[in-house]
Simulated assay, not measured.
Amino acid sequence: MIQYALKCSEGHSFDSWFQSAEAYDKLAAAGMVCCAVCGGSDVEKAVMTPRVRPARDAAAVPLPAKPPPESRKLSMPASAAEQALAELRRRIEENSDYVGRNFADEARRIHLGEAPERSIYGEARADEAKALAEEGVPVALLPFIPNRKTN
């Protein structure tokens, strides 16, 4: 595995892991590497600082004091973009019904008036989402993967 610092044409910086340097090159050439902030596909490697381990006999450097527990929770958003995505996710999950992998069928039923009108979210394959859009069913890709819930 290799980690690259990346940036998009809009100036957003983010990191991503790839199976190998060749895997990154292949995905980038196919336009499949997208910005984690805006979704743009014009992404390139940014200048990175190499990780170099100190010599075994190097003097021990004291670690900085630990921040309070509240500020080092992994679940806390680190940037304004992450905070906005977290808020979007919270609102969608609070105000919509999760229909899981039945999303395409349920969205079609709602569109045809066979099911009650309501906001839903779930999972659909790319071909299912494309078919829904071609049929005039309003769908949108979410910038996150839904938590698995029971229907």
Rank of each mutant, 00 (worst) to 15 (best):
Q3T: 14
Y4F: 14
Y4W: 07
A5Q: 02
A5D: 05
S9M: 03
S9K: 11
E10P: 01
E10Q: 10
S13T: 04
S13C: 09
S16H: 00
S16I: 01
F18G: 02
F18P: 00
Q19M: 11
E22V: 11
E22I: 03
A23T: 04
A23N: 13
D25L: 03
D25A: 13
K26G: 04
A30W: 04
C35P: 00
C35L: 03
V37Y: 06
C38M: 01
G39D: 05
S41W: 02
S41H: 05
S41Q: 12
D42Y: 05
D42A: 12
D42E: 11
K45Y: 08
K45A: 11
A46K: 13
V47L: 14
V52L: 06
R53Q: 11
A55E: 15
R56T: 01
D57H: 12
A58D: 15
A60W: 12
V61R: 15
V61A: 14
P62H: 06
L63I: 07
L63A: 15
A65Y: 08
A65C: 09
A65K: 10
K66A: 14
K66I: 01
K66S: 00
P69R: 08
E70L: 09
E70T: 06
E70W: 13
R72D: 03
K73I: 09
K73D: 09
L74N: 04
L74S: 15
M76Q: 09
M76R: 07
P77W: 14
S79K: 09
A80S: 11
A81K: 04
Q83C: 04
A84V: 00
E87A: 13
E87C: 02
L88T: 10
R89M: 09
R89Y: 11
R91P: 02
E93A: 05
E94Q: 13
N95H: 14
S96P: 02
V99Y: 01
V99W: 00
G100P: 00
R101S: 14
E106F: 13
E106P: 01
A107V: 02
A107D: 03
A107R: 12
R109D: 10
I110A: 01
I110K: 06
I110Y: 10
L112Q: 13
G113L: 06
E114D: 12
A115V: 07
P116E: 12
P116F: 07
E117W: 13
E117I: 10
S119P: 01
I120S: 07
Y121P: 09
A124P: 12
A124H: 10
A124L: 12
R125M: 02
D127E: 15
D127C: 06
D127K: 01
D127P: 03
D127R: 02
E128G: 02
E128W: 02
A131E: 13
A131Q: 07
A133D: 06
E134F: 07
E135M: 06
G136Y: 03
G136F: 15
A140P: 00
L141Y: 07
L141T: 11
P146N: 04
P146I: 01
N147Y: 06
N147W: 10
T150F: 14
N151T: 08
